[in-house]
Amino acid sequence: MTTKRNARPAVKVGAHVRFRGLKWQVVALSGRDIRLVGPDGGETVLAGYLCADPGFTVIRADAPQAAPKWGLFETAPATARENALAWQRHVREVACGLPGGPGSEGVVREQ
């Protein structure tokens, strides 16, 4: 939570919120999109939709706990994400011989 006097808890990465009757952790923010992880997986919701839920509350906002790898990926700077995705095709090709990954069309290169 914020340390300002009389301030309201903020929805930020690491915050825990109650939404649709379940406890979720905020793992990424992107514009109006909020990425949540709950007991059965994750989903992205619009901030207005989240806040309009009748049971919505910020439970606590503290340091992020362990988050799935995709949640951490979304919090990386845009240029770092672009570089990682550019390398993804090459890594898949090294792993299985096909740029599109296992099961994709094409001919495996001899190298």
Score class of each variant (00 low, 15 high):
56 F>Y: 02
101 G>Q: 03
76 A>S: 07
90 H>R: 03
72 L>R: 06
27 V>A: 09
106 G>H: 02
2 T>N: 10
32 R>F: 01
22 L>Q: 12
101 G>F: 10
75 T>Q: 14
4 K>W: 11
95 A>G: 07
37 V>A: 03
54 P>E: 03
85 L>N: 00
45 V>F: 02
27 V>I: 15
29 L>H: 11
35 R>W: 11
97 G>I: 03
90 H>T: 07
67 A>P: 10
87 W>K: 12
9 P>K: 05
33 D>F: 15
60 R>F: 02
14 G>Q: 08
39 P>D: 13
80 A>V: 03
77 P>E: 06
31 G>N: 10
1 M>P: 05
42 G>M: 05
105 E>R: 01
21 G>C: 05
73 F>W: 06
19 F>W: 14
39 P>Q: 08
106 G>K: 07
43 E>W: 14
96 C>N: 09
34 I>A: 05
85 L>R: 05
107 V>F: 03
19 F>I: 10
60 R>W: 09
99 P>G: 02
27 V>Q: 12
95 A>W: 08
25 Q>S: 05
84 A>V: 06
70 W>P: 06
58 V>E: 09
20 R>I: 04
92 R>I: 06
92 R>Y: 00
13 V>N: 08
43 E>H: 07
97 G>H: 06
83 N>F: 09
70 W>F: 15
101 G>W: 04
34 I>G: 15
35 R>K: 10
98 L>D: 01
36 L>Q: 14
75 T>C: 00
40 D>Q: 13
24 W>P: 13
87 W>F: 08
80 A>K: 00
19 F>E: 00
73 F>D: 04
22 L>D: 13
20 R>D: 14
111 Q>H: 05
30 S>G: 11
75 T>N: 00
77 P>A: 02
18 R>G: 00
96 C>A: 14
75 T>Y: 04
23 K>G: 06
49 Y>Q: 14
60 R>C: 12
20 R>W: 09
38 G>N: 10
47 A>G: 05
16 H>P: 07
45 V>W: 00
95 A>P: 11
31 G>E: 15
14 G>C: 00
80 A>W: 11
13 V>L: 13
14 G>K: 04
98 L>R: 03
32 R>W: 02
26 V>L: 10
22 L>T: 10
16 H>M: 07
